[in-house]
Amino acid sequence: MDTQGANASPPARTFRLGDFLRDQLRNIAPFITLLFLVIFFSLASPSFATLDNLENILQQVSVTAIIAVGLTFVILTAEIDLSVAAVANATAIVLTFFTLQPDYVNIANLPMAGPIAIILTLFACCGLGLITAFGVTRIGIPSFIMTLAMMQIGAGISAVLVRGQIAYSVPSLILTLGSKSIGGVPWIIIVAAIFLLVAHLVLTYTRFGRYVYMVGGNREAAEYSGVNVRFIVGAVMVISAMCSGVAGMLGVAYFGSAQQNEFDTFLLDAIAAVVVGGTSLFGGRGGIGNTIVGLFVLGVLNNGLDYVKIDSFLKILIRGVILLIALIVNIYAERLRTARTAGKGA
């Protein structure tokens, strides 16, 4: 009865390589980039492709990974969180505020028992996330601007609490997870892996995860389907703040100290990991699998550049160029898809 419908079916059945590649560009491109980088650095330096160095890489990206988990949720809903690094930093410093510091550290200090300090700190970063969520969903401030403000607030909390000093002590649980190993595997890698795994399961197998994708895919349609879009957007902002907070706490232990501006590079790294991995900046496409590939690309790049003789200042430029290329691929992947949809759809 409906001839148009009949015409639309063949492409769904027959396999076309061109269409497949176009659809999968966002997934394939990061993988090829990773492969290329690994081959390049392996040829450039014999000590690059070793098991020890793999552990190095994993350890180096772990803090970024935990931040990137939260950011993946945010970007999937087509929002952005620029406050991740500042929230991580603030949370790290709040944790040291609640932990007894050595005498020679002259900062504000309100010592608590370890578990209580951790719980209070988690409440604090959850609070920051709730403020962001409120600003974005209730007041209607675009997340780009709201989290820019939260970035400054996070930096402010850090500044006020440490006053240019450096804090060292954290509760023993955090010290273990951030800097110790079990059976030769650093705990921080295990924690990052658990975060990635749980996030993947949530996004793939839960109702909440489906809503995250649908809100990102078409916010209006989600709303007209009775999905509570505000709740979903608010929730991902809180998830992002919590992930950043955990990353910040472990980061203190990993780095051995907490100070102002310690996490500044993590904002760009975390966004880069998510976007380089191929999660769409327009929301609705991508996921934790993409973020993992993105983390590897970033980790291999940062680590590999140490193995080849290169001006360390040039590394910053190279990372910027890689990010730009990833953004271009991201946008093109989206455009190719929509062009195909427009060609065939209604």
Binding site: D2, Q4, G5, A8, S9, A12, K344, G345, A346
Partner: peptide, 10 residues
């Protein structure tokens, strides 16, 4: 099937 591939009526 991807929804975008269906005709308007469908």
């Amino acid at each position: 099937a991807r929804l975008g591939g269906l005709s308007g009526g469908n």
